[in-house]
Amino acid sequence: MYDIVKKEVLSPGVLLFDVAAPLIAKKCQPGQFVILRIDEDGERIPLTIADFDREAGTITLIFQEVGHTTRQLGALNKGDAILDLVGPLGKETHIDNFGTVICIGGGIGVAPVYPIARAYKQAGNKVISIIGARNADLLILEKEMAAVSDELIITTDDGSKGRKGLVIHPLQEMIDAGMKIDLVMAIGPVIMMRSVADVTRPHNIHTIVSLNPIMVDGTGMCGGCRVSVGNKNKFACVDGPEFDAHQVDFNGLMARQRMYHDHEKTERCGGGSCKCNK
């Protein structure tokens, strides 16, 4: 059992947990993830590691209540425990001094970007971060991102905080202004990552995205997380989760993420009549 030692509501429906997991905290690196199972009947879901404290032996998980399991997880409190937690899984982010790195986080995607941005900063890069959300209430980790970035740009869809618009708009402007960009790291909804890839592709700016497809085991055993990268199938759990954005088949990935969407609705909610908006 893995104890929840801290619970914080970051924004409506977005929660932060610190979980006691000394072995994972000792080993994990930016870019890696865990798989958890809440109880005996639970499903296994992957979550990226938003932070870690090696001394305290805790890892930080930030998640949005979007489905059955994340809602069930959100109902737990400090002092409760999670039955199974396995990790660190996946390859760690390649950290080096590249020069100027743009770190982009959309919505809940800011959480995994944070430790990566911090590591880039520590490695001597100039880090410019762009974080975005639908509105000001949903924006997370603003202070933390500011602390590890040379410059922080905020965008919201409705303009309630920072610039009105999408995360790709400031990126496009930097490129148009002729800024020398050595690397772009983008994590967020698939559609956002696809847009970022579309913006940087014509300029040959090396761009990395972190994928979070449907997974069962997270160790390369099921192949459910397969995604076409450069026309070859890769398993996001062991070959990734980070890939060259210009090689990823985002449309295929989006289709696969919908695999259980309707099924869950029908089976769990009697065809959606319960209005739980699943």
């Binding site: 809440i38 009947d41 499903e43 059955h68 399991t69 259980y260 099924h263 769990r268």
Partner: peptide, 15 residues
């Protein structure tokens, strides 16, 4: 392993 044949009593779906 995940007992998807008992979904939605268990959490893992299968189609």
């Amino acid at each position: 392993l995940m007992k998807a044949y008992k979904f939605p009593q268990t959490g893992t779906p299968v189609r």
